[in-house]
């Protein structure tokens, strides 16, 4: 129900943005900037840089709105991709500068717990159910921008294992989000 509503609203907003309506763009900003900023911050880990990237991304979203195809996914997914790619680009630039820095490598190999929005209560327990090895895979693929092959090389895990783990991780995450949604609904309604 909520999904469908969002979809319909977004389609109207997109159509207006395409006509150059900044008001509609402002609504989209309010709706998604927190999530996008959180994602960027998680990848680049620096406030100033994350703000610059968020600005760049929203400018790009505005500029390239005509290239968005709803057949390939939702507006949010499209925006996620833009933000993730820009963040990974930026991350790679800084990593190139620090190349050979051992402390960074150590940081990569340590299982990093996924940061949780403190507003969302009770999520940590559910997330902790996702085993470390799966979390690391998601961490490398999505937040560090590694390919499956690179993840396999870096963690010294067979490519096939990376593939199955990333699949089961997502499957578990999917269940996990159903739970989040349920808990959110029960808390708010």
């Amino acid at each position: 129900m909520i999904e469908t509503q969002t979809k319909d609203t977004n389609e109207i907003l997109i159509a207006k943005i395409k006509e150059g309506d900044t008001e509609s763009f402002s609504i989209i900003y309010d709706k998604y900037s927190d999530a996008l900023y959180g994602l960027i911050l998680k990848i680049v880990k620096q406030d100033d840089l994350a703000q610059d990237i968020l600005q760049e991304c929203f400018v790009k979203i505005w500029e390239k709105i005509n290239t968005y195809e709803k057949g390939k996914g939702s507006l949010f997914t499209w925006m996620l991709n833009i933000c993730r790619n820009k963040s990974i680009d930026s991350l790679r630039k800084t990593q190139r500068t620090y190349k050979g820095n051992e402390s960074m490598k150590n940081d990569l190999s340590r299982p990093t717990s996924l940061e949780i929005n403190p507003d969302t209560i009770g999520l940590r327990d559910i997330l902790n159910n996702l085993s470390d090895e799966k979390r690391i895979i998601v961490e490398y693929l999505y937040f560090k921008g590694y390919t499956q092959q690179e993840t396999s090389d870096e963690l010294n895990i067979p490519l096939g294992t990376v593939k199955t783990r990333s699949r089961t991780a997502i499957l578990e995450l999917k269940d996990y989000f159903t739970l989040i949604l349920a808990s959110w609904i029960s808390n708010n309604i």
């Binding site: 927190d34 994602l39 997914t77 996620l80 949780i116 507003d119 995450l173 989000f177």
Partner: peptide
Amino acid sequence: MEKYVQTLAV
């Protein structure tokens, strides 16, 4: 993925 990223919101 969308829902997951929403949990990271800042």
